[in-house]
Design a binder for these strands. Structure first.
Lengths: 197, 197
DNA sequence: GTCTATAACGAGATAGAC
DNA sequence: GTCTATCTCGTTATAGAC
């Protein structure tokens, strides 16, 4: 076999390293505020080589979102698979965002949502999918949680899920520059309490 | 007199027109995704002339935030001056954000918060002030409202105000590309209900 | 798959005439 | 206060050698 699906730490390929660096840059500076030169400097590889792996910045950006979406889907599956109660699932979901902010980053897709009107169509589509997946998972957790009496809130679970995502993204966005982790934690305590978590 | 402080519609000066155009561009595209050429095209004035009014993009950006902050302060004074109950004050506050989104824009300072790490220091300072002013006004409304029994919520009014600002900015941010005005309205209904408004 | 070299363009900014 | 003209730099992207 050429590539084993092991869980051991395999040396990341160049494309992955490029994506890692680009992701960090987008999460801290935004898609319109980083360049191939930045990645080149961080990785010690020339700009021309970057174009071998990702011909255009648009294709790099699209791969970035798709990988992020897939990683999130994986984490949500893991959370769901632990089959604990819905309260904990919600807490774990919030914890994902918390750990992103702890690295002084924003959610990749929250950042890109701010730049939405300037993004290539392919990136916009990928972004739409990301939020779709996230909110569908959350709505399901909220619906099941209320049925089981583990969570409590009013109205439509889909509305509630959308509210949650927006509030979480906003809390990260503002907390990064105003108040930091403490502010984010205070906000999410309030948010979770609202759902009986 | 050279300039009367009248409330009649006086023809806006060139600097004001530049700020108007720049503000619209930042609110839709972001500070890093617009150029002097864009303003030039929109206003029919050369880039060189723009530099006469705002020598650097950083100075233009700083003026933008300061003007936005002042306008917001004015609106908050007006709301406060109408001396109705705190519920209505909170609703009016939310309505300000709503009208911004209705023009397919984000809050200027929410957008800039996403780009925070790439902004000149002067712009960062001005942004900090904007949020400080906003949250101080909100915290005061929340504190008084609870005392008078017009609002109800748990914990520190300052925490609550910060939570509110984050949730509102996030609701706008995501709603612009995912769900639009309807999604924003659903989110703010939930948010207001949380405070007994 | 990575490199050197360069093209093609747009950015922020300045000099100096009117 | 607005213009023309220009400068310098950074950007995405490509050609072609190794």
């Amino acid at each position: 076999m050429k590539k084993a699906n092991t869980k051991t730490r395999t040396p990341r390929g160049t494309a992955d390293q490029i994506l890692d660096t680009a992701q960090q840059l987008v999460q801290t500076r935004g898609f319109n505020a980083f360049s191939y030169a930045d990645i080149s400097a961080n990785l010690g590889i020339t700009k021309a080589s970057l174009h071998y792996h990702f011909a255009t910045k648009a294709s790099l950006g699209t791969s970035l979102i798709e990988r992020y979406d897939a990683a999130m889907t994986g984490m949500l599956s893991t959370i769901a698979g632990k089959v604990r109660n819905s309260r904990e699932k919600l807490q774990d979901y919030v914890a994902i965002y918390r750990s992103v902010l702890a690295n002084r980053r924003l959610c990749l897709c929250g950042m890109l949502a701010a730049e939405y009107t300037t993004l290539p169509k392919a990136m916009q589509k990928a972004l739409d999918s990301y939020f779709q997946h996230n909110e569908a998972w959350l709505a399901e957790v909220l619906a099941a949680g209320r049925t089981k009496g583990e969570l409590s809130y009013d109205g439509d679970p889909v509305d509630a899920a959308q509210y949650l995502v927006g509030a979480l993204e906003g809390a990260m966005l503002i907390a990064r520059s105003q108040g930091g982790q403490a502010r984010f934690d205070a906000a999410t305590r309030r948010l979770l309490a609202e759902f009986g978590a």
